[in-house]
């Protein structure tokens, strides 16, 4: 269950030390944009040591430098032995990129005596071309776990003006989401970039959740709790989901063909949604009928 993914700069020892205390479901240790070119070597070694020494209690994502740079292979070589849950490749523009990455991962897994295919991929899609190819990227390898939209680089690529409301990325959000769901994988939303605007963050996270995203990234620990809140079902939603499931059970027991609740027909999408909500609530340990 990944609602929140927190970016941690890879060359910052103080932040690495406390990376997993902020309540994020996953942390993204960043070797790419948060690290200046002359410190790529230092960050790679620091991240390696930190992961080994600190045994993080969250899901672990490592963001690596893009294919085509000098750092790409060095990054992969250094991080595969750390057995992260996910690798996040950057500036992913098409399926060839993911195929290349998957092959390299397989080779490095073999080299390190690791189980093949264990490390999943969350491609960061942040170019116009990447958005166009989103579905193919999603289907490029069994390792692809979810698509992640990076709206800052993407809106620059569009020559769009980036706003808090995000009208300029509505298409990209929809496209990513549709591609991910069509491929039966997850979709993760771009971070909200104003660190001081907690209200704006909550609005943005709520919008992403309403659109269907699985979770959202954060560039500040202060955004984590707002994201977790937005992507967790509310008590009313959980209660309703249990009511739906109970009504269905009752209907089956009584041999009814159609079941209605509060005067509304319960059809399959409603049942599916209710099942998802209950499952999520159970994973998160949130209250509902069962726990009361």
């Amino acid at each position: 269950m990944i609602r929140s993914l927190l970016f941690i700069p890879g060359n910052n020892p103080g932040m690495l030390l406390n990376a997993d205390v902020h309540g994020a479901d996953a942390i993204i240790l960043d070797l790419e944009d948060a690290v200046s070119p002359d410190q790529k070597d230092a960050a790679r070694i620091l991240v390696r040591n930190a992961v080994r020494a600190l045994s993080y209690n969250t899901q672990l994502v490592i963001r690596v430098n893009p294919l085509g740079t000098d750092y790409y292979l060095d990054d992969l070589k250094a991080v595969v032995p750390l057995k992260p849950d996910f690798i996040m490749p950057t500036k992913v523009d098409g399926e060839e990129y993911i195929k290349d990455l998957a092959e390299r991962l397989t080779a490095f897994e073999k080299e390190n005596g690791l189980e093949e295919g264990k490390i999943k991929i969350i491609p960061l899609i942040e170019t116009a071309e990447g958005i166009e190819n989103a579905f193919r990227i999603a289907k490029a390898s069994k390792r692809v776990f979810g698509l992640f939209l990076g709206a800052e680089d993407y809106s620059a690529d569009l020559r769009a003006h980036r706003t808090k409301e995000g009208d300029e990325i509505l298409y990209a959000r929809g496209r990513i989401l549709n591609a991910a769901r069509a491929a039966a994988i997850e979709a993760f939303d771009t971070p909200f970039t104003d660190v001081n605007d907690e209200e704006g963050l909550e609005k943005d996270a709520f919008l992403a959740r309403e659109m269907g995203f699985t979770g959202k990234a954060a560039i500040s620990p202060r955004h984590v709790s707002g994201i977790n809140k937005a992507f967790s079902p509310t008590k009313a939603e959980i209660d309703y989901a249990y009511e739906v499931l109970m009504a269905i059970e009752e209907g089956i027991r009584l041999g009814k063909g159609a079941v209605s609740l509060r005067g509304k027909m319960i059809d399959k999408p409603i049942v599916d949604r209710a099942k998802r909500v209950v499952e999520t609530a159970k994973i998160l340990g949130l209250g509902g009928y069962e726990n009361e």
Partner: peptide, 9 residues
């Protein structure tokens, strides 16, 4: 400081 905020929460 995010660690301070986490402690406060």
């Amino acid at each position: 400081d995010p660690v301070g905020l986490k402690i406060a929460q």
